[in-house]
């Protein structure tokens, strides 16, 4: 089962995503994709760690190359967040690339390993602002990745101020 969770920033996506594996008995893996650059990233990481503590997650930090992760079969995986992974793959080495195919291949790899795969992504295309070309490219690439993820997901949930709204499949909890 694969569930994609989208929504704006600070819309309660993580809190909701972390509730889903509560019902699973197998090993719970949290794939953290945020690079700990700067105070705010560090604060966000601390806040998320606090939120996850006591929920039995094992954290794997993987900023790029999710297709290389090896994990035990039948674990449940929560990957957070696609927005960071996409930015890391696109911008890390100076040149801007399109990582869509690489990321989708990586997700399919995780989907094969996991009994449950939950991916948190980000809705970046709805603020009506035109950005410079690098950022516009990022918005379009993340949009394309989100569309492809939604197509292979069983459930697609949008969080609105903490309320899960099913766009595809069903709300799990």
């Amino acid at each position: 089962m694969m569930t994609l969770i989208t929504g704006g920033s600070k819309s309660g996506k993580s809190r909701y995503a972390e509730k889903i594996p509560d019902t699973f008995t197998g090993k719970k893996i949290y794939i953290a994709t945020m690079r700990p650059y700067g105070d705010e990233a560090a604060d966000a990481i601390i806040r998320h760690r606090k939120m996850r503590s006591g929920k039995g997650f094992e954290t794997v930090e993987q900023y790029t190359d999710i297709h290389r992760i090896s994990l035990p079969a039948d674990c449940s995986i929560l990957l957070e967040c696609m927005g960071n992974l996409c930015a890391n793959e696109m911008f890390t080495d100076g040149a801007v690339c399109d990582p869509t195919e690489k990321i989708i291949t990586g997700v399919i790899h995780l989907k094969k390993i996991a009994s449950e795969l939950i991916i948190v992504t980000n809705e970046t295309g709805s603020d009506g602002i035109s950005y410079e070309s690098g950022t516009q490219k990022y918005i379009s690439v993340l949009g394309e990745i989100n569309r492809q993820l939604a197509a292979i997901a069983d459930n697609v949930i949008e969080c609105v101020y903490g309320i899960p709204v099913a766009l595809k499949g069903e709300v799990l909890c």
Binding site: K10, T124, S126, D127
Partner: peptide
């Protein structure tokens, strides 16, 4: 309004505003 669906703002105050609006809305 829902205000969180966009690129993280460059201005620090705007980031704080978005965060606090999101949390208050929740």
């Amino acid at each position: 309004d829902e205000i969180g669906c966009g690129i993280i703002p460059i201005e620090k105050n705007e980031r704080i505003y978005r965060e606090l609006t999101g949390r208050s809305g929740c």
